[in-house]
């Protein structure tokens, strides 16, 4: 269970504070995979970073049980001067995992050949995504936070990601943010909608999508 209590986050802009998350109180069950739908700029990635503990909310707290991943599908976290292998060793160390095992599994999954031993700055964005995804699979998280990972990489890699997730659906679940209901449907059984700083959880993706479409059409505010 991931519990968000009074999560509030605002960004300062020249036009005054922009409240992206406004007193969100939601319990997200981690037994099943959950999608979060929201328009561009609705605060989806911010929410994911806060759940993952990368960023602090202005107010409120996140309660989690089990190990939650970093937001997957991001391009940060790598040092461009270091090789894929070195970055991998670093992440294994901070998660207290066996360094050699994590390195081997990541290399196998990422499948980027000799680039694994070259500095990250020589990578294409697709290669970076493969490496980051491979690393997250080598460390056994109970909840994976996914930020549109399916948007990167070719069809083969997308398929590989999907297979990896379904392989471990017994022990891990996903929280995925996206503005595409089709992507969320592929991975998730439940879905929430993030709109105007509020987060609402629905029992099915269809119900969530109905509400999301209504927000987009401007029928409901």
């Amino acid at each position: 269970m991931i519990e968000l209590r009074h999560i509030t986050k605002a960004y300062q802009t020249p036009f005054g504070p922009n409240v992206v998350l406004n007193d969100i109180n939601v319990a997200l069950p981690t037994g099943e995979s959950i999608g979060i739908l929201g328009k561009n700029g609705a605060g989806k990635s911010t929410l994911l970073r806060i759940i993952g503990g990368a960023e602090m909310p202005d107010l409120g707290k996140v309660y989690t049980d089990g190990q939650v991943s970093w937001p997957i599908g991001f391009s940060g976290g790598f040092s461009g001067a270091l090789t894929g292998e070195d970055n991998c060793r670093f992440v294994a160390r901070i998660y207290g995992q066996n360094v050699d095992r994590v390195t081997d599994e990541t290399r196998a999954f990422a499948d980027i050949g000799r680039y694994f031993y070259m500095p990250i700055r020589t990578y294409s964005s697709g290669m970076k995504a493969r490496l980051a995804f491979g690393m997250s699979m080598a460390i056994d998280f109970s909840v994976y936070l996914v930020d549109e990972v399916t948007a990167v990489g070719d069809a083969n890699f997308k398929k590989k990601c999907q297979e990896a997730f379904s392989d471990r659906s017994e022990r891990s679940s996903i929280i995925m943010v996206s503005h595409s209901p089709d992507t969320i449907r592929q991975y998730c059984s439940r879905c929430a909608v993030l709109n105007r700083g509020g987060l609402e959880l629905f029992p099915s993706v269809d119900e969530a999508y109905e509400r999301y479409a209504a927000y987009q059409a401007g029928d409901v505010i």
Partner: peptide, 10 residues
Amino acid sequence: NKGLLFYPQV
């Protein structure tokens, strides 16, 4: 080192 802060341990 902002990228590192993506990892909540750091």
